[in-house]
Computed example of a mutant assay.
Amino acid sequence: MNEHARPTPDTHQRLTDLEIKVSYADDLLDTLNALVARQQEQIDLLLREVSRQRQRGSDDGLSAAPRDPRDELPPHY
């Protein structure tokens, strides 16, 4: 009653195909993880830069007089 099912050539091929697909999926996952990490570093850098720009703007805005919107028109108007 102890029968062992022997893999057929078709089963062996399917298993090999699945192993190949898993290998490609693992490689893709590693690539995407690296991409996300780089993008997060860029986002962090941009957030720091925006924060610095806001800080500079608020420093300048405290000491400057209120702006007249007409002063900001392009020169050809």
Rank of each mutant, 00 (worst) to 15 (best):
L32N: 10
D30G: 09
N33H: 03
Q39E: 12
L47W: 05
A34F: 12
A34D: 13
N33K: 00
I43W: 11
L47H: 04
I43N: 13
Q40V: 07
A37D: 13
D44A: 08
V22Q: 05
K21R: 12
A34Q: 15
A34E: 11
S23G: 06
L46S: 06
D30A: 13
N33E: 12
Q42K: 14
N33M: 02
A25N: 05
Q40N: 02
Q42T: 13
L46A: 02
L35E: 14
I20M: 05
V22T: 02
A25Y: 03
V50Y: 01
S23L: 05
Q39L: 14
E41S: 05
I20Q: 13
L32W: 03
Y24W: 12
S23W: 06
A37W: 05
V36G: 08
L28N: 05
K21M: 12
T31H: 15
T31G: 00
L47E: 13
E19K: 05
Q40K: 08
R48P: 03
N33R: 13
V50N: 09
L28P: 03
L29H: 06
R38L: 15
Q39D: 04
I20S: 10
L28W: 08
N33W: 01
A34R: 15
E49G: 01
Y24I: 01
L35S: 10
A25G: 07
S23K: 02
E41M: 10
A25I: 12
V50W: 04
R48F: 00
L46K: 03
D44K: 02
R48Y: 07
Q42M: 15
D26A: 04
D27M: 03
V36I: 15
T31S: 14
E19S: 02
S23N: 09
N33Q: 14
V36C: 06
L28H: 10
R48I: 02
V22A: 06
I20H: 09
R48V: 07
Q40A: 02
K21D: 05
V22Y: 04
T31F: 13
V50S: 13
D44T: 08
V22G: 04
D27P: 08
E19L: 06
K21T: 01
D27R: 09
R48Q: 04
E19F: 01
E49N: 04
I43L: 12
S23Y: 08
D44H: 11
K21F: 12
D27I: 02
K21E: 04
L28M: 07
D26W: 07
S23P: 07
D27N: 03
A25D: 02
D26H: 02
L29V: 08
Y24R: 09
R38H: 14
T31M: 10
L35C: 08
D44L: 02
Y24Q: 14
S51A: 07
E49Y: 08
I43A: 08
L28Q: 08
